[in-house]
Design a binder for these strands. Structure first.
Lengths: 202, 202
DNA sequence: TCGTAAGCGGAGGACCACCCCACTTGTTGG
DNA sequence: CCAACAAGTGGGGTGGTCCTCCGCTTACGA
């Protein structure tokens, strides 16, 4: 934790001090609210908790998706780094499997992450919101290509499909107790199939 | 189609004529609204479309889940019948695969069905809302037991897991164009695994 | 025909996202 | 140092949601 999650000045000059402070307050409140209530947490409540007018929240984060992106940027970057790491140190098949499992684990631990990952795909304009989605897509693409070259995965499997599956599993198990083990079981099922036999990919 | 979808008198005496008429109007409006906007369609709008006060809608259908159950009861019954049919006529492995594919197909064609199926699981009180969920669970259970006896599926796979997976896939692909083929691909992936080799279960 | 209970729906409360606009405040050039 | 001003603020408004209360209407059986 403790990642200095601050990327508030995409425009020319640096932000005003108060604006930056508000940005960070909102981000902190959002992080907590999303952890507590999931991706559908009330924006109004987040603004209230941050001690800020709702207009300020909407100015800094034009859409719910933008806020979620900011909240989870650190996690997503960690996931991408982990992908690079696994690709370099593990054998291709295991690397992909381990990474997908890591994605599920993160998604189960951090409510709203899965939603944030998929929403980037279709919801909202592609220029702004899709960063998390594309980041993780690119990271996974490398891993998948490697596994495919090694003959560990079918050639008709795309990274988009795998991530959709992973997000779907995470969202389906979100909320119920014991969701973590359930999500793990479902991932195992999806990767190894329902047939009897040795599961070669964790 | 054209299933006479009317089960409005669970209590002792028959409903009053106007009540029954309103019940059916609401059901018709809900069917259309859910087809158009998915499981999150506005209840207020449904009541408006049915020419009925919102209180009337809430009296007939105490929860959104109850309304969805009523809307999809026919489809779910058809699915259950199809399970019985497949179990009797196909070899066990294929029967289960074909049925799961049928569930996905139905869920893709009828927006909100997948949500209705899973919501029954956790959301709401178990006495009233879980009918669709338990119906389809029971239907699938039979098919799975048969397939397991034939050695076509791993012994640690539960019907609940399979249906969660199927619903998750349906919901994940809901909304985007070409969702049907995408859903089919994802189901194939989940059933046969990511490894190369002959997929024995369609 | 008529009493009554079953059913009705509008109004209203509590919430929500989002936007407008009069006001405040940090910043910076003189 | 200070003043002009652009950048930033938040209260309040709009229009939407779900859901409930309660006084009125109406279908039905006696």
């Amino acid at each position: 934790m403790l990642e200095g999650n601050t990327a508030p000045a995409p425009s020319g000059r640096p932000m005003r001090a108060d604006a930056r402070r508000n940005y960070e307050r909102i981000l902190a409140a959002a992080t907590e609210a999303v952890a507590r209530h999931g991706a559908e947490a009330s924006l109004e409540e987040i603004a209230r908790q941050a001690g800020v007018g709702s207009a300020t929240l909407h100015r800094h984060f034009p859409s719910r998706q933008a806020l979620l992106e900011a909240v989870f940027r650190g996690k997503v970057e960690a996931l991408c780094a982990s992908a690079r790491d696994l690709a370099a140190t593990q054998d291709p098949g295991r690397a992909l499997g381990a990474w997908l499992r890591a994605v599920v684990t993160h998604a189960v631990r951090n409510r709203g992450l899965a939603a944030s990952l998929v929403r980037g795909a279709s919801g909202g304009d592609p220029a702004l919101g899709a960063t998390c989605h594309t980041m993780i897509l690119n990271a996974g693409e490398e891993l998948l290509a490697q596994a495919r070259r090694a003959g560990a995965v079918r050639s008709d499997v795309s990274i988009a499909d795998l991530l959709t599956l992973v997000s779907a599993i995470s969202q389906a198990t979100e909320g119920d107790p014991g969701g973590a083990v359930r999500a793990g079981r479902l991932l195992d099922l999806a990767l190894n199939g329902v047939h009897p036999g040795p599961g070669t990919m964790i």
